[in-house]
Simulated assay, not measured.
Amino acid sequence: MDLTPTELERLTVFTAAEFARRNLRAGIPLSHPEAVAYLTDEVMLAARRGEDHAAVRDLAGQLLRADQVEPGVAELCQVVMVDAPFAEGTKLVALFDPVPATEGAVVPGEVVVGSGPVLLPGREDRVAVRVENTGDRDVQVRSATHFFEVNPALDFDRRAAWGRRLDVPAGSGVRFEPGMPVEVHLVPLAGDRVAHGFAGLVDGPVDAPGAYEAAARRAAELGFRGVVAP
Rank of each mutant, 00 (worst) to 15 (best):
A144D: 10
H146K: 04
H185Y: 10
L222I: 07
R159I: 12
R22C: 00
Q78S: 13
A94F: 10
R10N: 12
E9R: 15
A87P: 00
A87V: 13
R137C: 01
P33Q: 05
T15Y: 15
A199Y: 04
L120G: 04
E132P: 15
D97T: 08
G61E: 04
M180C: 12
V73W: 02
E149M: 15
V187E: 05
D203E: 14
R48V: 01
S172V: 11
V82L: 06
R193W: 00
V168P: 04
L76C: 15
P169T: 08
V228C: 01
P152F: 00
E213S: 01
V13A: 01
A214C: 13
A87W: 06
V182F: 01
G191R: 11
P108R: 13
F176Q: 02
E132M: 12
G179A: 08
G72R: 00
F224V: 06
V194R: 13
I28Y: 01
W162A: 03
V73S: 10
R130A: 14
L119C: 05
V36I: 06
V127W: 05
R164H: 01
E9W: 12
L154I: 06
L201G: 09
L95H: 02
F148C: 07
F148W: 13
A170L: 15
E70Q: 15
V112A: 11
E221G: 07
R158K: 10
A219T: 12
G210V: 06
S115F: 14
F198Q: 05
M180P: 02
A105F: 04
G27D: 08
L39M: 07
L92I: 11
G27S: 12
R57W: 12
R165I: 13
P71L: 00
A54L: 07
F148R: 09
G122R: 07
A220S: 14
L8C: 14
G223I: 09
A54R: 13
P178N: 11
Q78E: 15
V106L: 12
V13S: 01
V106S: 09
C77W: 03
Q62S: 13
P33R: 04
V112F: 15
A211M: 02
D203V: 06
K91N: 01
A199E: 15
T134D: 03
P230I: 00
R57N: 14
A219M: 14
L201W: 13
A60Y: 07
V13Y: 06
R158H: 15
M1N: 09
P117H: 07
